[in-house]
Design a binder for these strands. Structure first.
Lengths: 207, 207
DNA sequence: CAGCAATGTTGGCAGTGTATACATAGATGT
DNA sequence: ACATCTATGTATACACTGCCAACATTGCTG
């Protein structure tokens, strides 16, 4: 069945098309101004067609956030893999990757963490499980660093949480526009996040 | 002019009433589900009355966020004041206050940092200036700590940014529901944030 | 006390999420 | 080959939203 000029009644792959188009829209107008109807128009379907693929607007946003968490897991893991014997460097570089990804996708980051999605308490379902993957990678990283005697022998979860908080906070401040003059450009951000994480490594107090 | 049973045509203090009611609504339904019309109904006025006091929905939200930044400045400053000669303790306690305030007002925190408000680039105006106040307090704190030889002689802004990121990240993770089993209750949060900040003080690396 | 500015109200418009009923087409079993 | 089932898309409708324009009421000020 030739779908010449895309005028078939059935779209063929609307699900993925919608997600891709939605990401574009959110990038343009922010997660707050995003609307299903505009998305449908952009995808060239009627305004209720998305409901055949997503229960809700919320479900669509969740799906997008999930892809965000997936790439977050990938990026940080890849960054860590490149410095396999050096836990300190691994921690720093995966953190830099975290911040850089957020800087490249501020709106998606806000969508993921800003409270746009109703998560019904904390059900540790779909979406959260993917976020946990990223955290689990961090935990493993720290665990191995502890065993090789690089990191202090504190509770692993605590160390992981501290690292995550630091990186996440920096990312959120940047994407939230709070660090305007300080960290706008890519290079500044790379440098800044590395420095900040080094501080967490070495500590702030005079020895 | 007796405004018996509040049935005067002119409300008298609608501006503040709206802000207070809006905060309640946001607390209940989240910043995303908040609507001007419901707010007006709750305040007992017509659905366009708020426009006499706020240019926009965005302007109303900005005003609320600003009050949030004000109390954030207050709380952290108060916490620091209580340990005046001890910069390390000051830093920790003001950070704990930051996180606790966020935990007590998750929705308002999301409103402040989540990207619900259009800030038109980063104009460092109204809203941002109030946020800067909080940051300036942190800078002062670190500066004095450096001079008394407690903190390392790194660039002050960098130290401040690291501290802020750490605390802010923890706050955002908690209010975003990412730390569900880990940090739900007030006591846990106090303990956790203090521990995390101590880590930043002492560093993560083995010495 | 006349007029003005501040503050509210009514009504309307375009845009939104979503429920319901209907239309079409691709897959499946005989 | 063909009838039928199901997945997918459409049309229509409703309540709700932000905001605009026109009008009403009030308190203040000359």
């Amino acid at each position: 069945m030739s779908k010449r000029s895309g005028e078939t009644y059935h779209h063929g792959n609307l699900h993925d098309t919608l997600i891709a188009a939605a990401i574009e829209l959110i990038r343009d107008k922010g997660p707050n101004a995003f609307s299903l109807r505009e998305l449908a128009k952009k995808a060239g379907v009627s305004h209720t067609a998305p409901y055949r693929h997503f229960k809700d607007k919320n479900a669509l946003l969740s799906a997008i956030a999930e892809t965000g968490f997936k790439t977050l897991t990938e990026r940080t893991r890849n960054a860590a893999m490149q410095f396999d014997g050096d836990p300190k460097r691994q921690l720093i570089e995966s953190g830099v990757a975290y911040v850089e990804l957020a800087l490249d996708n501020p709106e998606i980051t806000q969508l993921m963490f800003g409270g746009f999605i109703d998560t019904e308490k904390c059900p540790k379902e779909n979406l959260d499980s993917e976020a946990d993957n990223a955290f689990q990678g961090l935990v493993n990283l720290i665990e191995s660093g502890k065993q090789s005697g690089v990191f202090r022998n504190e509770e692993t979860e605590l160390l992981a949480l501290a690292t995550w908080s630091m990186v996440h906070g920096l990312a959120m401040l940047i994407t939230g526009g709070q660090l305007c003059g300080i960290a706008d450009e890519q290079d500044q951000v790379r440098d800044l996040s590395a420095k900040v994480e080094s501080l967490l490594m070495e500590g702030i107090l005079v020895r």
